[in-house]
């Protein structure tokens, strides 16, 4: 549905986005993740035809956005970072205007505007001027605007920014519902949003794609090794050496004490479940096993890992999960 190939955008000597490639299938939600200034908005602006790329191309619903902009744009709904509202227009007038320029047939305009206002929960503000809306309403009118013409492709730049928690949940729910027959690109810097809404994630930093994968795979692949947290009571200094002796364990780090019990992080090879042996070793030695849980790398850790300046700390991404293209 969306095919982005080697997109590059240069402003003079500054390269905002370099060689970004990804694809989005029909019905898929792609999360676009990156710190502020990473090139998310620039990429989205190129995909939606707001600005032409310096190099590379974007194909939306089978039409090259640069070669056949009108056909491609008919199939895109776009919510920019700032909802593009006219402050002097009422919500209904505004949506009717957008329906007109997006080519919704005259006979359907009214009903589509009504439907979208209901779906995005802005119907109670239909007669209010856009300039007088709260941030949450502005954001949702912006979303309604992007959905009016029932586009194949939805490009949403931080759609939940400025919403309260209830509205965030409703909006995410709406986006998930839409994914059925639309393809969605959703940019965000809110990490839980990605794991809750998106099937695949593109992480971008300094204009480069650093990872493309499902949230679950990213978590698994980037861990490299499994780490298990154990809390052992009554072992004293012997615990560390006893745990190191368990087959499969690569290292043991004592991270502190908790009411006399010793807290350890036990690292082991991936795919080698050492929990059973660890438990046996601890209990066998007559100590108390108070707590044991796997330490998963959260998306947050991965994100920080991938986007921090120190590239030496960047985990190597297996080739098949790196960018295709």
């Amino acid at each position: 549905m969306i095919e982005v190939q080697h997109l590059t955008k240069q402003y003079g000597a500054f390269t905002a986005v370099e060689d970004v490639s990804f694809t989005v299938e029909r019905g898929e939600i792609l999360g676009f993740l990156g710190p502020n200034g990473a090139g998310k908005t620039t990429t989205m602006r190129m995909v939606t035809g707001y600005m032409p790329p310096s190099r590379g191309r974007a194909i939306v619903a089978g039409y090259d956005i640069f070669e056949q902009p009108i056909e491609a744009k008919k199939r895109i709904g776009y919510l920019p970072e700032t909802p593009p509202l006219y402050p002097d227009m009422t919500v209904r007038d505004y949506l009717t205007f957008v329906a007109k320029i997006r080519g919704v047939p005259r006979a359907e305009r009214r009903s589509r505007v009504d439907t979208m206002m209901a779906r995005t929960h802005v119907a109670d503000m239909a007669g209010r001027h856009c300039g007088k809306l709260s941030k949450g309403y502005r954001q949702r009118v912006g979303l309604a605007q992007a959905l009016l013409h029932d586009p194949d492709v939805l490009v949403l730049d931080e759609p939940t920014a400025g919403l309260d928690p209830k509205q965030i949940i409703e909006t995410r729910q709406l986006i998930r519902e839409l994914a059925g027959n639309h393809s969605v690109i959703l940019s965000t810097h809110i990490l839980p949003e990605v794991s809750q809404t998106c099937q695949r994630v593109v992480i971008i930093n300094h204009g480069h794609v650093v990872a493309v994968d499902t949230p679950a795979n990213l978590t698994a692949r980037l861990r490299g090794s499994e780490t298990i947290y154990v809390l052992v009571d009554g072992g004293g200094a012997d615990v560390a050496s006893a745990l190191t002796a368990v087959p499969g364990v690569t290292s043991v780090a004592v991270t502190g004490t908790d009411a006399g019990a010793l807290a350890c992080e036990v690292a082991s090879h991936t795919g080698h479940d050492v929990r059973r042996d660890l438990a046996a070793a601890i209990v066998g030695a007559g100590w108390g096993l108070l707590e044991m849980r796997p330490m998963r790398m959260s998306l947050e850790d991965i994100f920080l890992h991938l986007t921090t300046e120190d590239s030496a700390e960047q985990p190597q991404i297996p080739e098949e999960h790196a960018v295709h293209g």
Binding site: Y50, K73, K74, P83, P84
Partner: peptide
Amino acid sequence: RSGTIELLLTAPLT
């Protein structure tokens, strides 16, 4: 200034 130009330039208009 208000960003509404993004709406016009990404709509199917010449």
